[in-house]
């Protein structure tokens, strides 16, 4: 354990000494790895924001590791199809990674209704890549000007205000439950298929408020068709300086769709470390940062330990809220 820590420390040290010192970096590269293309499996469809993030990373990662990085879509059941396949078939040899979405992973694993054939133990966290904060959106014509307007109306008409999510067990759904619990209100929660559907409904006035993530909202907000009432972050979102956080308004609510990468459990630690550092390096690529910004995706790196801890920290929240919506 100690040795590993020292190893990790030295890697970090070397990194901080500057990425330019390539020969020393190469020395830490696992022997003969990678010597063939690496595949990242995505449990979501091509073109969605999860998929776009992976493809953009793959492009920068390939420059770092010197091998092609392929993105492979196996969509279905909120990534459950891909994860089942990943658990059953991916070899722990460092050539197959998978994208996970938190808290969607937890709501699949811990929800008995989902009958998941895998558990958290089957996966080795590598690094986190994206954190897309949750937010609440209403259309331009909506009478709700502030978060308080919305919550007051929801209190006055319990179960009448129509709030949409992008699916049961999604981060948006958990956020709705969280708001309901903390503000002591009740929405008429409507689970929709995806972000475009949710936007269509809220713009058409078929739903009153849409719970989703900032990344998918920005185009609609920029074009003036809708506005964001509040974001679920610790601080205000840099590009939306006038939009308050839930925290400022007295609700301790921080929620996001967080996306990172895993290897199958049992992958050699030196490979995990190498990939962790390679992802970190790829994320620091200015070209990557620029493209991610354009795509509305907020970068958030977490290394193996931090990512692992974050995953664990989300388990209890997910379990609690699952118990609430499956009761």
């Amino acid at each position: 354990m100690k040795k590993r820590r020292i190893q990790c420390l030295s890697v970090c040290l070397l990194l901080s000494l500057g990425l330019l010192w390539a020969p020393a970096w190469a020395a830490d590269k696992p022997k003969d790895y990678p010597n063939k293309p690496i595949t990242i499996q995505i449990g979501f469809g091509a073109g969605g924001s999860s998929d776009v993030g992976v493809r953009l990373l793959a492009d920068s990662l390939k420059k770092v590791i010197g091998q092609p990085v392929l993105a492979e879509n196996k969509p279905g059941a909120g990534s459950q199809v891909m994860l089942t396949d990943f658990k059953n078939n991916a070899k722990p040899d460092g050539y197959t990674m998978a994208l996970i979405n938190i808290p969607q992973l937890q709501t699949i694993v811990f929800d008995p209704t989902r009958k998941a054939l895998f558990s958290m133990k089957d996966f080795q966290p590598v690094a986190n890549h994206v954190q897309d904060p949750g937010a609440v959106l209403v259309r331009k014509e909506s009478p709700y000007k502030t978060l308080e307007d919305l919550l007051n109306d929801a209190k006055a008409r319990p179960g009448q205000v129509k709030a949409s999510t992008t699916g049961i067990g999604s981060d948006d759904h958990l956020a709705v439950l969280d708001v309901e619990r903390r503000a002591k209100v009740k929405f008429n929660t409507i689970h929709l298929k995806d972000t475009p559907t949710a936007l269509t409904r809220v713009l058409g006035g078929h739903t009153d408020v849409d719970f989703d993530n900032i990344g998918g909202f920005l185009p609609t907000v920029d074009s003036g068709l809708a506005r964001i009432l509040a974001v679920m972050m610790d601080q205000r979102y840099p590009d939306l300086p006038n939009v308050p956080t839930f925290k400022e308004r007295g609700f301790d609510l921080v929620s996001s769709s967080t996306r990172g990468y895993i290897f199958p459990a049992g992958t050699p630690m030196e490979i995990v470390r190498y990939m962790e550092q390679s992802i970190k390096k790829a994320m620091a690529d200015p070209e990557h940062m620029e493209r991610m910004k354009k795509a509305g995706l907020t970068l958030k790196f977490m290394g193996v330990e931090e990512f692992d801890k974050f995953l664990e920290s989300q388990n209890d929240r997910a379990k609690q809220l699952i118990a609430e919506y499956r009761k």
Binding site: V52, P219, D222, L225, R291, K294, A295, G296
Partner: peptide, 10 residues
């Protein structure tokens, strides 16, 4: 979007 063009009325 990735090419810097926001779809919508604007």
């Amino acid at each position: 979007i990735m090419n810097g063009l926001t779809p919508g009325p604007l």
